Simulated scan of single mutants.
Amino acid sequence: MEKLPEKVDPQERERAMSYVKILSMIGLSLGTCSLGIGIAVLALLDGATYPVASGTGVWFAANPIAFGILGIAAALSTNENTQNKLLTGHYVTSIILMTQGYAFASAIQGLVECSTGSEKCGSNADAKAALKGVLVGVIFFIYIIGIISLGIHSKKKHVLHPDWKKGGGCCGSSCD
């Protein structure tokens, strides 16, 4: 016989959801910032080659934007089943945020290339260096947001994910 999820204190769940919502709003803002920086770098290419021309800001932005949208949608959802699915998606995107090391390395590499005046940076090296520097900061803060989010999901698992089996996570045999 399968054990039913425990009842959750509504105030504790609301408090945990407010943390998710705040982190998601910050993640969405930083993802949008990353997208804008990526577009600006691509607009200023003018002879730049890899890593400056990699479009890191553009392709990296997809995950923080998804992270933000899922978290905000979960916080605004009134349907418990939908909210649980959105929270699971938010948890998964938190994990994916931690796997974006290539974006961080590419942004740092582009910053170094433009800061040293390399030919790979093309013209507008100072502007590209500034944009890449901001992008490095944005990606770093998104990593921090991902770590905090994973901590909240882990610490408040009994509140945010009451349907997960003990220690089993979302991918047990009974998840819908």
Rank of each mutant, 00 (worst) to 15 (best):
Q100I: 01
A62I: 15
L87W: 03
G68P: 06
V58D: 13
E14V: 08
V136M: 04
N84A: 14
N79V: 01
A16E: 00
A16Y: 00
K85G: 11
W59S: 11
Y19K: 15
T49W: 04
N84R: 13
K128A: 02
L44T: 07
S18M: 12
W59Y: 14
T78S: 15
A105P: 02
I39K: 03
N84T: 12
K132S: 15
Y91F: 15
K120I: 05
V136P: 03
L70Q: 03
S77E: 08
A53E: 09
L111K: 13
N124R: 09
T99Q: 10
T88D: 09
L131N: 05
V20W: 04
A40F: 11
T82W: 02
K85Q: 12
K21D: 13
T78P: 07
G68T: 02
G137N: 09
N124E: 11
K128R: 09
I108F: 12
L111Y: 14
N84W: 12
E14L: 15
I39E: 05
L23H: 00
A16M: 02
T116E: 03
G117Q: 00
G110A: 15
A53P: 02
T49Y: 03
T32S: 15
G133I: 14
N79A: 05
A73H: 04
G89C: 08
P51G: 14
P64N: 05
M98H: 04
M25I: 15
F104S: 10
M25K: 13
G137D: 07
A48L: 03
T32F: 15
W59G: 06
N124M: 05
A129K: 01
V20T: 10
R15P: 02
Y19I: 09
A53K: 12
Q109W: 11
M25G: 13
A129M: 07
A75M: 04
A48F: 01
S34I: 01
I26F: 06
I26R: 01
S118F: 00
G47L: 01
N84Q: 14
A40M: 14
A125H: 05
I69M: 13
A43G: 08
G110S: 14
V112G: 00
V58W: 14
G89L: 06
K128H: 02
R13L: 13
A103M: 06
I96P: 01
C33N: 11
G36E: 06
G68E: 10
G133N: 09
L42H: 06
A53V: 05
L30V: 07
G68S: 10
S34R: 04
N63T: 14
E14C: 10
V134T: 10
L70D: 01
Y102G: 12
G89P: 00
E14P: 00
A130F: 11
A127L: 13
